[in-house]
Design a protein around this nucleic acid. Structure first.
Length: 297
DNA sequence: CGAATGACCTGTGAGC
DNA sequence: TGCTCACAGGTCATTC
């Protein structure tokens, strides 16, 4: 799936179409994705106005005017296609259900934008690890998906002191600790690898070794905290600044990715810090970890 | 309790 | 070219 920066980029791409829009009609093309859609999903959305589109961790949240939130997760392979009237080559077809829908187009939102123009937002997800649900706004923070989420990796909540608190006594390797959504919400496999590389820390190192006996963050933990913040902030910025290029010709918003230092570069040279080693791939908790065995300790 | 593993799905690319 | 296998950005349920 898109990690947090990609989800944020998708949010920014959808916001111009969805913010303030009215939902005219919803096509729900199958009963479930990863989970069943809630009962009456399409009917409950029809006629609602979208007050705003936000994000928490890797979840997209559309606030509706009846006090519920449309929660959307992209799983591993989810993408959105946003089309406005001018994008449609054959305007006569615009209000019809697409006769050329892709196999994995599972949900289509037919909207009326704030500018009073028709628009269409299509959710496509081949692996169907994504899902959508409806949750009352007041219950959101207690909902199963959100109750245990940790802090956002950008913003003031993430600090070395916070991580020292969460890492103290933790025998799990750093890779696993950083993927734990109850500690930091939104970090995924790519950016964990990248942050550890930047902080020059081995993914196999025990999380507790970054904390002093008195529970204070060691210098390495200060470094890691800053690396996480920077890696995520830069990726969001790169996605945001290239949003125009990154929206596909067909209007689809999916992954944005720029060049990585270690991710998916097994056997290639570690190019920074002039260390001449090659990137290694190992498996930790069932997932690939990419790192430089020489400059990450 | 924490940590590791399997499960959920389809698509893609490498290797034979 | 066609087949098989390994692997893919995420969570959730189960097991040790």
């Amino acid at each position: 799936m898109p990690e947090l920066p990609e989800v944020e980029t998708v949010r920014r791409g959808l916001a111009p179409v969805m913010d303030g829009a009215s939902i005219r009609r919803v096509e729900q093309r199958r009963p479930d994705l990863r989970f069943p859609f809630p009962d009456g999903f399409a009917a409950r959305l029809t006629g609602r106005r979208i007050a705003g589109l936000s994000r928490r961790a890797k979840y997209l949240l559309a606030d509706l005017d009846d006090g519920t939130v449309l929660v959307m997760h992209l799983g591993m392979s989810g993408r959105f296609l946003a089309e406005t009237e001018e994008d449609i080559e054959a305007p006569g077809d615009f209000h019809h259900d697409t006769g050329h829908a892709e196999v994995h187009d599972h949900v289509v939102f037919h909207l009326q934008t704030v500018a009073d123009a028709p628009a269409r937002v299509t959710y496509n997800d081949p692996r169907r690890f994504g899902f959508m649900t409806l949750v009352p706004r007041a219950e959101l923070s207690n909902h199963a998906h959100f109750r245990n989420l940790g802090v956002e990796p950008v913003g003031n909540a993430l600090s070395a002191d916070y991580l020292a608190d969460r890492f103290a006594g933790k025998s799990a390797p750093l890779k696993a600790a950083l993927l734990d959504q109850s500690i930091i919400a939104g970090l995924g496999n790519i950016y964990v690898c990248e942050a550890l590389y930047r902080a020059r820390l081995s993914p196999r190192r025990k999380a507790s070794t970054l904390v002093t006996k008195a529970g204070q963050p060691r210098a390495a933990l200060e470094r890691l905290t800053e690396a996480i913040r920077m890696v995520i902030a830069e990726a969001i910025e790169a996605g945001g600044s290239s949003l125009r290029d990154y929206v596909q010709a067909d209007g689809s918003l999916g992954y944005f990715q720029h060049r990585f230092d270690v991710y998916d570069r097994e056997g290639e040279p570690c190019e920074k810090r002039g260390c001449r080693s090659r990137v290694r791939r190992i498996v930790q908790s069932g997932r690939s970890t990419f790192y430089c065995p020489d400059c990450q300790r």
